[in-house]
Design a protein around this nucleic acid. Sequence first.
DNA 1: ACATTACTTTAGAATAATTATAAAATTGGT
DNA 2: ACCAATTTTATAATTATTCTAAAGTAATGT
Lengths: 137, 137
Amino acid sequence: MRSSTEYIEKLRKSGLRPTKQRITICELLFNTDKTFHFTINDLTKIIEFNSNQKISLATVYNTIHAFQKKGYLKEIAINSSQTYFDTNISAHHHFFDEKEKKLIDLEDEDVYPIKIKKTIPGKKIKSVEVLVKIDKI
Amino acid sequence: MRSSTEYIEKLRKSGLRPTKQRITICELLFNTDKTFHFTINDLTKIIEFNSNQKISLATVYNTIHAFQKKGYLKEIAINSSQTYFDTNISAHHHFFDEKEKKLIDLEDEDVYPIKIKKTIPGKKIKSVEVLVKIDKI
DNA sequence: ACATTACTTTAGAATAATTATAAAATTGGT
DNA sequence: ACCAATTTTATAATTATTCTAAAGTAATGT
Ligand SMILES: [Mn+2]
Ligand SMILES: [Mn+2]
Ligand SMILES: [Zn+2]
Ligand SMILES: [Zn+2]
């Protein structure tokens, strides 16, 4: 359980005003050792059940996008009707269970290093992400 | 330029009735040596400019999903407002240029083989896809 | 503390890709 | 030709996300 003053500092340093809503969302996202994956819909429910506050949907979207731009969240590329975000911002890969619609982290040691031999003139690599789709045996 | 009778056969064998619309879409998608990536929006324009026929949007969606289910198309996992499809159905990876919103194939020899060490009990791997996001240097 | 300004939140409307509906058209088999 | 099953179509519905603009809050200077 980190103190909210820590998030106030973090937000201020990022040029984001530490509002009640942002602090609440920080607490719900980052006040845990475990990182996790979520959709906006998931987060809305988390807020509903774990805080006394009602935060408007627009603010949830605004906040998540602001946090993502600041690098506090990662967006995971999968084809889904909803966008997935990750509180684990380290470079890592994923399993995706399409039935359960759940992401599972692959740690660095779970995947042999990826080497891309091809280059595109005038372009540089921004990220390399592996998505492993899994299914019932 | 393949003959349309070839597509009629292909469709019949798949249990899909060879309708005018499906044959047209087959011709536009598969009558070329080069494979390519497209969205439904792209395909709609391709149909408009390269066939005398008007195919309703619902039919375009229906047909593409039918072809995908039969394995004639692959859906590419990226976060975009539109779904991308690929006429290259071989297992392969992609560059994605987020500015241009364009996919570029990575050939097998462009990427060292991916090895996943982690396993999930009761689950088997269905696919392994690498997405390399690129940007202006 | 008060005033001023900039930023943020909010409810609700708008947008846009995709899916559903159900009637009309087409296909394949007899 | 006839019939049943499938397909196409126009249109409506759905739904995640973004936009809008008014009201609220935070930061800053006096
Ligand atoms: Mn987004
Ligand atoms: Mn789809
Ligand atoms: Zn993750
Ligand atoms: Zn491809």
